[in-house]
């Protein structure tokens, strides 16, 4: 009986959760929320591509250990 109830309630509950999710998504315009930083970051990338011309740091100058150490020393969330 219990199993039968769970089997019946399972898909119904799933559907309700999905509907709640859809309603929440409709409450905030997430598409616009993420589009703005996307375009902004794209513009910054273009500026960097056009104006950064530093060739003083050569490729192949770092080791795996240096890369890992540099990552560890960054003071921020991983």
């Amino acid at each position: 009986m219990k199993d039968q109830a769970a089997a019946t309630a399972g898909p119904a509950a799933e559907e309700l959760l999905k509907q709640a999710s859809v309603l929440q998504m409709q409450a905030i315009n997430w598409q616009q929320v993420w589009l703005a930083p996307c375009l902004f970051a794209g513009a910054v990338m273009a500026i960097f591509f056009l104006f950064f011309h530093d060739r003083s740091v050569k490729a192949g100058e770092i080791t795996e250990e240096q890369a890992a150490a540099a990552g560890g020393e960054l003071d921020g969330a991983p």
């Binding site: 998504m25 997430w30 598409q31 616009q32 929320v33 993420w34 589009l35 930083p37 996307c38 970051a41 794209g42 910054v44 990338m45 960097f48």
Partner: peptide
């Protein structure tokens, strides 16, 4: 930087 652009783009495209 491109990874940031793509990430925000994916989030935006996934929203609807």
């Amino acid at each position: 930087m491109l990874a940031w652009v793509v990430r925000y783009g994916l989030f935006s495209a996934a929203a609807d």
